[in-house]
Design a protein around this nucleic acid. Structure first.
Lengths: 234, 234
DNA sequence: CCCTGTGAAATTATTCACAGCA
DNA sequence: TGCTGTGAATAATTTCACAGGG
């Protein structure tokens, strides 16, 4: 167990990614995006307050988060936008371009394949896969759709380490197994199920319906809480 | 705690939603889904251990989560699948059907409109909206695409309280304003930006690229450190 | 003064471990 | 016996508040 040491001196060589708290990691991409926005708006430097406002978080939290990167702001001024962008990108491992494979070219797969947000932020889709003869061999967003049989070969050839599952739930575990077999070590799963994978494989799940259910809870809370606070706005 | 007290409150299925911790709320939908799976597999009752395994969480956590609902399991047996399903649904406010409006019928909007997971889990899409003449008036997944001008009318007529934004980033804030004006009080935002809304409006953001960036971090961590210690999973 | 970086405090979340009931 | 429900212990996260550099 490592407690915070009382030195505020020179101890920031290369940040060990394992020491960045999970909650911080989850926010770094938001900061990155906010910095991008600010850079485009012509800002060279930004204070923790301003950046926190754009990213939608508390400024103390932001500073603490950045402190985990060993990042250097300038007291009295703020952070250099370009430098901070580079530091966060480095911490997230985005300096090296990471291509992904996408499995399933149904509605969601199509949306993901055409999603500019991926390419914009350092992720290219290396190849698309499906099993349906209807899709295999076609082209989508400038990418050929391969049969799953070709997965291992392409993953290994292009050194892919991340796979995105956009298949129906019933196929998800099978696809995950194939991905793991092919050598993929991170999976983004859009199917609403728990994937069984080896310990060295990271899985993140995005369930669109879950988000709505959480909003439903908030609606429930509002309608139960106070029936008197209503904003008249027409 | 209830050694000598009259448990008059134990029968009341009406939990105060404000007392359920955030982290618990975020997991309830997962439990709900797991229960659905178990029910289909023919289980009448389920132990916290079994349910936790299906939902991918620790069983003590699951029990504590359920205790916030005032839910009653049977000692020595487990939980009644049907009853627990109903209790969670109630806590999430899903007993009442909640329709949503979806704005933006680009790739992502199309995917969402056709996403069976919504309808399956108590959310219907009441109407689709867009501004592009190319889309307005067409039909998609059995739903007509309306022009944004009709938003307020339809939201009010159908008593919609949840809106889903699947537009380009540039339009997101404008759409959010329209939704708020129309009376929507919860927004699910797929555009990668922070929305400025009144305090009484809840916003949840889903950024597909952020998820990939978090995975990228894990890849980075794996390739940088010699993997010899404990697993970092989730 | 500005601001950052950060210990310490407060809050929240998770896990343990066991009493007590079916 | 097997299981739930839950205090107590632990861990993680957020927030406060201020020292100290520019």
């Amino acid at each position: 167990m490592r407690t915070g040491e009382p030195d505020a001196e020179t101890d920031i060589p290369d940040t060990d990614p394992r020491e960045i708290p999970r909650a911080t990691v989850a926010r770094l991409p938001e900061y990155l995006y906010a910095l991008h926005t600010l850079a485009e708006a012509g800002h060279d430097t930004v204070s923790s307050n301003a950046l926190a406002a754009v990213a939608g978080v508390n400024s103390a939290k932001l500073r603490k988060d950045l402190s985990h990167l060993g990042s250097y702001g300038i007291r009295g001024v703020g952070y250099d936008v370009t430098l901070l962008t580079r530091q966060i990108s480095h911490a997230l491992g985005l300096t090296r371009h990471r291509d992904v494979v996408l499995i399933g070219v149904g509605h969601l797969g199509k949306a993901l394949a055409g999603y500019a947000g991926f390419a914009n932020r350092g992720f290219g889709i290396a190849a698309l896969f499906d099993v349906s003869p209807e899709h295999v061999g076609t082209e989508l967003a400038g990418l050929r759709v391969y049969h799953m049989d070709a997965l291992a070969e392409i993953v290994s050839e292009k050194q892919i380490s991340i796979g995105v599952i956009a298949t129906p739930t019933t196929a998800a575990q099978r696809v995950a197994d194939s991905l793991v077999n092919a050598g993929v070590t991170s999976i983004l799963n859009f199917a609403p199920c728990i994937l069984d994978v080896p310990d060295n494989v990271d899985v993140r799940k995005v369930d669109l319906a879950v988000e709505l259910q959480i909003l439903s809870f908030h609606e429930h809370r509002k309608s139960q809480g106070s029936a008197n606070e209503k904003k008249g706005d027409e």
